[in-house]
Nucleic acid binder design. Structure first.
Lengths: 219, 219
DNA sequence: ATGGTATTTTTTTGATCAAATGTCGCAAGT
DNA sequence: ACTTGCGACATTTGATCAAAAAAATACCAT
């Protein structure tokens, strides 16, 4: 009674699958996504695929590319600044609210994600880095127990993911600082302000890296 | 070649229709929404209806009620505070950014919405108030020219709408202050900070009213 | 015998699929 | 460079299957 892998409907499975593909860089920005292509790859009917794409589109994770083809968007500098502003407005607050709901068990799980993340960095595993970095933050935000703010944060992550992927694909996982350690220390001591500050620092870090890359590309 | 009323696909028509029904209080919180009911009312197949519901669900405008029935959510105090925090983080900034893109033509259109709004207040027309108040803000945010932030603001409005409706249904449109006048003045003078402050005041106003109602109900 | 509960039957609704329809892009040919 | 035909794709519908809610019936305890 611990797992229920086959219990959820197709359209949710497809949604999650597609979502992770976008989040962890399996779908490159600009690469076209067709309904029928996914039907064959995922081996389901087109109705569930349709719904999943529709959902992701309304979350900004996919966009209508010109005609009626959809693809993963590549934010330009202006859009990236919007994402940055929104994330910095929401996520530190989320981290602050999560602090009081964190006990030893939760700390342990967060440490687990962080270990996996560091291992991925050492291994030069880009996909692993993206995934565990996301899981760390997503779990932390879940602990805040907030419905609205968490959904916004998740939506923003969906927009930020592909850009991070591009940066890492370019420079690799070398010199990726680990700001999570500080957040974990602050969580242990229950200092909400320090947690918020650590998370803010972590986010600013990532934002700056993408920003540099965007500047360099836009010769 | 001037009209294109039938040019957009069904699923978008249904989405917009449903969206407005939620925004302007035609669907009461808690009232169940069935796919087949909408199929009959809107006279389309179930696939477009499905997609529209899916989209609205992912935007938080509808929620899964128990098993697989959806309805308009009624935020409790904690959720309302989340919505309030997010709106106050995003919307004043949006108003600030919009300021520099506002010319005489845009002012005129905003004034038009405001006039309709005031007329609705005098008439005691709740639905009209909700609609024109929304159009005023939505247009202003469109003028900011931002993709990400605007979509967040619209999503938040979708969550806030039903609660506003409840308040107005209870107390009517009397003593509804008009903070738009101040915003319009500031827009004319191009003072972005003042525009942001006016919008903030407007939002705080509405938030406080809903908050009082929630407190009063939660005896 | 009556009130309430459990169980079975009926009906409604949701999920998925396969096929029909229409549209748009693309490339070949003028 | 412009037109035209082909092909790929999105959109929509209607049908089918499964699951859950609602209604009806039967059962049991008091």
């Amino acid at each position: 009674m611990s797992e229920k892998p086959a219990k959820l409907p197709d359209h949710q499975r497809v949604y999650r699958k597609l979502r992770e593909m976008i989040l962890f860089g399996e779908l490159a920005p600009g690469q076209p996504v067709t309904i029928q292509g996914l039907v064959q790859v995922l081996d389901v009917g087109m109705t569930p695929v349709r719904e999943a794409i529709r959902r992701l589109t309304s979350e900004g994770a996919l966009i209508f590319k010109g005609n009626r083809r959809v693809s993963v968007p590549q934010p330009d500098m202006a859009q990236w600044d919007e994402i940055a502003f929104a994330r910095l407005s929401i996520e530190p607050e989320l981290a602050r609210m999560a602090t009081e709901n964190v006990g030893p068990a939760e700390i342990e799980r967060l440490v687990g994600y962080d270990d996996l993340l560091n291992a991925a960095i050492d291994r030069g595993d880009v996909r692993g880095y993206l995934e565990h970095n996301y899981r760390f933050h997503a779990y932390l935000y879940d602990l805040a127990g907030t419905e609205v703010l968490s959904s916004i944060a998740n939506m923003l992550w969906l927009r930020a993911g592909p850009s991070l992927r591009v940066v890492l694909g370019r420079y690799g996982t070398a010199n990726l600082p680990d700001k999570h350690a500080e957040a974990l220390e602050a969580l242990k001591s229950g200092d909400a302000d320090r947690v918020a500050a650590a998370v803010r620092g972590d986010i600013e870090q990532g934002i700056a890296q993408v920003r540099e890359t965007l500047l360099a590309e836009k010769v």
